[in-house]
Amino acid sequence: MRNRLSRHWFCTAASRPWLFVGLGNPGDKYKGTRHNYVGFEMIDAFAESQGIAMDTVHCKAIFGQGIFVGDIPVFLAKPQTYMNLSGESTGPLGAYYKLPLNRVLVFHDDMNLPCRVLRLYDKGGHGSHNGLKSVIYHFRGNREFSRLRICIGRPPGQMDPKAFLLQKFNRTARERIDDAIQEGVGALKLLLSKGLTETARSFNTDQKYKHIRFQTLPTS
């Protein structure tokens, strides 16, 4: 059913499909942690907003598909390979649907900005993020795919960054992340209707001012 429906989309859709990939780790052990789950949460929130069922396994990912307003096909994936091997799922998904990399958007955590801030980019490096390293590797070194950075804040004081990443959000940070995810869903809907360039310009400007407001607030 997936193959037949997907071919139909390619024949009739006014524009190419998008593939949204959320990076994370599978299993209850990682739910709610800073590094390992926010990409999955963004996928789930967008899927819920569009009534897309994440009930298929495809290319080592929990997978869903739907059609956005305007007849734009959207594929959603949560790789089940563990974070450091995310490309083993993302690369084959892009190849399976014959998507140019400018129609692939990866959601991932970022520690370089205050918790609740988001950034949308059309390309970039890996920033020492092992999930992104794997995706780039499986795209044969090509970095021309889009990213939605979900900022989780910096570790306080002299705290080990690895320990910080593996912690669950406290109540305050959890509320901020929940708000950020809903803002991200709105940005994704705008992207599908207006395109990446226009969406990134307006969205990142709004997030810049939010960054200033939140940069001095504690996250742990």
Rank of each mutant, 00 (worst) to 15 (best):
R147G: 13
A187T: 00
Q215T: 00
G32M: 00
A95K: 15
R34A: 01
S15C: 10
Q207V: 00
Q182C: 11
A163F: 12
F214K: 14
H129W: 09
D55Q: 10
L165H: 08
D55M: 07
L132T: 02
H126N: 12
A13P: 09
D206N: 15
L113H: 14
L192T: 09
L120R: 07
E175A: 12
Y82I: 09
E175L: 09
K189C: 13
L190I: 13
V106M: 09
L105V: 09
G64T: 02
A61H: 11
L101F: 15
H108Q: 11
P79V: 01
L118P: 11
S202P: 01
Q80C: 07
L19W: 03
A61S: 13
F68N: 10
K168F: 11
F75N: 09
G39D: 07
T172Y: 13
M1Y: 11
A180L: 06
I136V: 14
G186I: 11
D179A: 11
I152Y: 03
V104M: 04
Y121P: 13
Y209Q: 00
I136F: 03
Y97P: 10
E48A: 12
T205W: 04
A180M: 06
Q215H: 04
Y37N: 04
E144T: 10
F40L: 02
N130G: 02
L113Y: 12
L120M: 09
F139A: 01
I152H: 08
S134K: 08
A77G: 09
I52V: 14
L5Q: 12
G195N: 08
D179C: 10
A180G: 07
A95R: 15
S15N: 04
F68M: 13
L105S: 05
L85R: 03
A14W: 10
A187N: 02
S220H: 06
P79E: 04
S193D: 02
V69P: 06
K31D: 01
G70N: 00
P218H: 06
S6Q: 15
